[in-house]
Simulated scan of single mutants.
Amino acid sequence: MAASILAGCAASPTGSSSPSVAPSPGTSPSAPSPATSPSAVPSPSRTPDPIDALSLEQRVGQLFMVGTPATTASPATLAVVRDRHAGGIFLSGRSHAGVSGTAEVVARFTALDHPEGVPLWVATDQEGGEVQVLRGPGFDAMPYGIRQADLPSDQLQARAEAWGRELADAGVNLDLAPVADIVTSEATRFDNPPIGGYGRQYGYDASTVADKAGAFADGMRDAGILPTFKHFPGLGHVSANTDTTADVVDRAVTPDGPDVDLYRPLTAAGPSAVMVSSAIYDRIDGSTPAVFSPKVVGLLRSEVGFDGVVFSDDLSGAVAVSAWSPADRAVRAISAGVDVVLVSAKPSVFPAMYDAVLAKAKADPQFAAQVDAAAARVLAAKAEMP
């Protein structure tokens, strides 16, 4: 989304009032003082940024989205929203409770006090096919992504708006969808377990994926739901699933290739978030998973031109990041430029993540500035929500 980066809370020299000016030697006592002289112009007061109202602890909390079962409000997740200021929750698993049952779960979280009225992000995976968390009365069965792509784009947008209104009625305001991954080919789709194997793709070329994923996102926006394009810079060519496998390496995606390029029209079309993959991209930065790579996140910022909120893929239970401690995962992701760390599969690791980020921000001014910038982007995105 085109959310502007707000300034941090450090006092600005230009934001303080001008010091009083002492009279020059020899000034006549009858001469007007500079403070009352018509030529003296008072310094304008600095307009407070929204982030100024948040403590460091609250800013750090905005950088996390923590899981709870979609069927119940986890006491542990309720506690971290209340006590560690988590800025978002993720409804995980599978639920057949329908719209009203889901809304009851969400209401337990939204009823909590939130810093300075900052809204809570309530998210889920509502893609379609096998990746549809919320079902039951009031929720339509959503087709697989590859079947959604059979619809004309205007019809897909209308269907997505209807699905989005179901989410809104249940209290959800952010969908971690649509998938924007280009799967190599129809003939080899099942060689790509995380996307093609589940029929999550919209197609096999950039034009089709951009058109259909864009239509889905437009429909979600029409319903007041923030869409999230995933999994940057592309997860359609790998031969293993990062959720269940370590050292998943992509050797196809390039910085100037179609997998990256399609994010330009997608993110330029309206407010959105982007999720970064935890695979390793050998032709961009083969040294570390993308979610820990300043090169990969920097590519999204500088080359694609995206200035909205960047999410990690799940960093709590994914085998792809299991070589790092939970604390290191969170610090590395934010250091790389990620704004929100997703802690969905194993929310019990959140306290260690939060505490590590907070400690690092207190000890390292450069990292603290990254925390401020990330929190500012989150607040800007939340402020744009209907």
Rank of each mutant, 00 (worst) to 15 (best):
I51H: 01
D313I: 04
A158Q: 14
G87S: 05
I5K: 12
G136A: 04
S207A: 15
D339G: 10
D169L: 10
R329L: 05
V260T: 08
V122N: 04
A368Y: 07
D113P: 13
G337Y: 08
Q370E: 12
R108S: 13
V321Q: 00
P34N: 11
V105I: 06
P50W: 08
A279I: 06
T228F: 01
T288M: 09
A383M: 09
G8Q: 08
A356E: 02
W324N: 10
S12V: 05
G196V: 08
S45V: 15
A383L: 09
S325L: 04
I182V: 15
L174T: 13
G164C: 04
P44F: 11
R332W: 05
T124W: 03
I89Q: 03
A97W: 01
A103L: 11
L54Y: 07
A330C: 04
K362G: 12
R264S: 04
S325N: 06
R159A: 15
G234S: 08
A252W: 05
A97H: 11
S312R: 07
I195G: 00
G236E: 03
G15I: 06
G98W: 03
A252M: 09
S316C: 08
K346L: 12
V249R: 15
A187E: 15
D154Q: 13
S37F: 06
T288G: 01
Q126N: 10
A35H: 11
P178S: 08
D222I: 00
P69R: 02
G138L: 08
S74E: 12
T188F: 05
A345Q: 14
G8K: 03
A290F: 00
P143L: 11
A356N: 01
V248F: 01
P271V: 07
D259L: 02
S45Y: 07
R147L: 11
G8M: 08
A279S: 14
R189T: 11
V276W: 01
S100I: 12
V331G: 03
A352S: 14
A246D: 15
M353S: 02
G214K: 04
V118H: 01
A336C: 07
G197T: 08
S272L: 03
G136K: 05
F350A: 06
V371D: 00
S239W: 02
V331M: 03
S20R: 13
T242C: 00
M142V: 15
S18Q: 12
G88D: 07
R200V: 10
I5A: 13
I334K: 09
N241F: 07
R84F: 04
A11N: 09
S272F: 01
D259H: 15
D259K: 02
D181N: 09
Q370G: 02
A380E: 13
P75H: 05
Q126C: 06
A97K: 12
P386T: 07
P265V: 00
G67I: 08
V309F: 06
R165M: 11
D355R: 04
E166M: 05
